[in-house]
Simulated assay, not measured.
Amino acid sequence: MNGLWSRLRSPSKPSIRSAEAECGADQGINPLKSPDSASLSESSIRDAGPWTRGKILTLSILAFFALTLIVVAVTVPVLLVKRNRSHDDPSYHDAANRPVQVLSDFPDPGLLHVNNTWYTYGTNAAKNDSEVPHVPVATATVFNSWTRLEDHDAMPSLSSWETKINHYAPDVIQRDDGRFVLYYSGELKDWLYHHCVGVAVSNGTNPAGPFMPQSKPLACPRNQGGAIDPSPFRDVDGKLYVVYKADANSIGHGGDCNNGKKPVLAVPILLQELEADGVTPVGNPVQILQNDKSDGPLVEAPNILRTPQGIYYLFFSSHCFTSPKYNVKYAYATSLKGPYTRANRPLLKTGDFDLISPGGATVSRDGTKMVFHANCGKLRCLYAAAITIHANSTITPSSL
C-alpha cells in the first residue's frame, strides 16, 4: 500500500532498478543477474507486484493449512493406536492366554467344582421351545475340554408361577448338608417376557440334579422390572448370599435393550443375604452397583469372588448382549457390600483375542479360572479361560 500511495502522490516514474528489485525479490531471483527484467513494461511491473505478493501469501497460507491437515491425519491415528496399545497389559497380546471355545450355544454359564469335576449350567437358548432342557448341564475334568450332558435337564419340573420356556443364567452352590441349590431366572406366567429369580434344591447330592423348584420366586421386584442373572456366594464367615440384577431395562422406554431412550432407567445389581438353607431371604437386598454412562443401557450377569487377601471382586457385563460393546467388567472392594471401585479396563471386550461380545462370566472360587460366552456366528458359544488377579487389584488373562 505504501508504494501505491507514493505513486498516486508523485507523477514521477519509479526507477527501473527499484522495479526490477521488487519484481525480482517477488520471484526469488537476483535482479542484478536477470537479463529480462529490464524489458518488463512499467505497467506490468506496477500491476504484477502487489498481486503477486497477495497470491504468494494466499498460496503460502493454503499450503500451510494443507500440510498441517496432512500431518494431523497421519500422526493422530498413530498416536491413538500407540496410546491404546500402551493401556493394554502384554497378557492381551500373548496367544497362550487365548480363551478356548469349548461348546456351542451355551450362554450365561454358571460354574461349580465338586470332587475333581467341573459343572457348568447354561441358559435355555432355544427360543420358545418347551421340549429342550430347562437347565442344560456340561461337565469337565480338564477345564479346556467340556462335554454337554445330552438331553439332561437339571430341573425337569417347574413351579406354577413360571412358563416352560426362557430360563436364563442358572448357577449352583453346595450348602452345609451336602445338597445343592440352583438359582435361575424364570419367566412369569402372569407377566410374559419378564423374569424373576427362582430357586430349586437338589433331591440328593448330585450337582447335576434333579433340582426341585420352590413354590414362589426368591426375588421378584416387579416395580423394577423383575430380576434375572442370580449368582450364589458364600463369604468367609460361612454366610450365603445371592447377587442378581433388577431387570429395570425391561420396563424402559425403548432403544438398546429397551433402555436406550431417555429417560434411561437405573439398573441396579442387588445383594441378598440368605439363611443356611440357601432359599430363605434375610432382611432386604442391598444395592452394590448401578449402571452409569459407560455401561450403556444396563449392567447384568453379576458374580462375586473373595480373595484370601480379603478383596471382593464383582464381575459383571455392561451394554446390551446384542451389541458389540457387550463385555466382561469387574469392580473391587474391601467389603462385600461395597463401595466397589470399577477397574479402568474391561477384563474382556470385543477385539480381545478376536472375541465378539464376550459376557456372562462366572469365575472359579479360587479366582484362577473363568467361563463366559461370546458370539460365534448366530450362536453364543461357551469359552473357558484363565485369569490372574494382581496385588494392585487388576485382573488380566492368563494361560490355561
Rank of each mutant, 00 (worst) to 15 (best):
T52Q: 07
D176M: 01
M155K: 04
R85K: 14
Y312T: 04
T120N: 07
E20A: 09
H87E: 13
C196Q: 06
T75F: 12
S250L: 13
R380N: 02
A73D: 12
E22L: 13
M1Q: 14
G122C: 13
F316I: 04
D247L: 00
S323I: 07
L40C: 11
N259Y: 14
P302L: 05
W51H: 09
G24H: 02
G351S: 08
A125M: 11
P136Y: 06
G24N: 04
L188W: 14
Y340S: 13
S6N: 14
R222F: 12
N284K: 15
G377H: 04
M155Y: 03
K216V: 08
D129L: 03
N249T: 04
D352H: 05
I288M: 12
L182I: 04
A384F: 00
Y340I: 13
P281Q: 03
G178A: 01
A208Y: 03
P324R: 14
A200H: 02
Y326R: 15
I269P: 03
L336C: 14
D88Y: 07
T396I: 08
G283E: 02
G204F: 10
N144Q: 10
Y313I: 02
F64K: 15
A66W: 07
C376S: 11
L158V: 06
E273Q: 13
L69E: 13
K261Q: 00
T280Q: 09
G254E: 03
P263L: 09
C257I: 09
L111W: 02
A248R: 01
T388H: 06
I16K: 12
C381Q: 02
V74G: 11
P232W: 08
L111S: 03
C23M: 14
C196S: 12
P217H: 12
F233H: 08
N344K: 10
M370D: 09
S202E: 04
S215Y: 09
I288A: 15
L336P: 10
S159R: 00
G226I: 02
L149S: 02
C220H: 07
S18V: 11
R342H: 15
L69C: 12
